[in-house]
Amino acid sequence: MQIPVTNVQLNHTVVYATDRQLSAEFIAAVLGLKVSAPFGPFLPVDLGNDVTLDYYEQPEGEPLQPQHYAFLVPDEQFDAMIARLEAIGVTHFADPNHTDAGRINHLFGGRGAYFADPDGHNMEIMTRPYARR
């Protein structure tokens, strides 16, 4: 019999990058956050809910596998994030396949957009969490 665990939380996740400084500064700029001091080989970006993205440089010569990272953001900050993407010349998309350029989606009564980071990670900002069954 399994004992239910009800207080499990994500603490950090490693984001592989070809240039950890560039990638950490990119996502921090888009989300309106700050890059923290290095922690060993990691360059953390604190998301404000006791979770960090720990940027780590991919060993040279090893291929980097793009991942997907989704951020639940306050509705009142969404437009500013889109404006920051546009200001730095990064195209945002309404869909995860990046086919509907320059548009946002309205899933689950909120707003959302997808964009690529410098290493091709598929980043998503959304103002409403996905509905779960």
Rank of each mutant, 00 (worst) to 15 (best):
103 R>A: 15
63 P>D: 13
115 F>A: 03
100 D>E: 15
115 F>E: 00
112 G>W: 01
47 L>T: 13
45 V>Y: 07
48 G>F: 03
64 L>R: 06
124 E>N: 08
115 F>I: 01
39 F>P: 02
72 L>V: 11
126 M>Q: 13
117 D>H: 09
80 A>W: 03
114 Y>T: 04
93 F>K: 00
64 L>S: 07
44 P>D: 06
45 V>H: 10
71 F>Q: 01
92 H>W: 11
81 M>S: 07
51 V>D: 05
129 P>Y: 03
127 T>S: 05
39 F>Q: 15
93 F>C: 05
127 T>M: 09
49 N>M: 12
110 G>N: 08
87 A>G: 14
122 N>Q: 09
72 L>N: 11
62 E>G: 00
116 A>P: 00
37 A>C: 08
37 A>R: 12
43 L>T: 12
85 L>R: 04
111 R>M: 05
124 E>T: 09
60 E>Y: 02
116 A>I: 00
96 P>A: 12
63 P>G: 12
40 G>P: 06
117 D>K: 02
81 M>N: 00
39 F>Y: 13
107 L>W: 00
63 P>C: 07
101 A>M: 00
40 G>Y: 03
54 D>F: 04
44 P>F: 06
104 I>M: 03
73 V>E: 07
52 T>E: 04
127 T>R: 09
87 A>N: 15
44 P>R: 13
99 T>K: 13
99 T>W: 08
62 E>L: 14
83 A>W: 02
87 A>Q: 14
57 E>T: 15
68 H>C: 10
109 G>D: 11
119 D>M: 13
41 P>N: 06
93 F>W: 14
69 Y>D: 04
42 F>Y: 15
79 D>L: 04
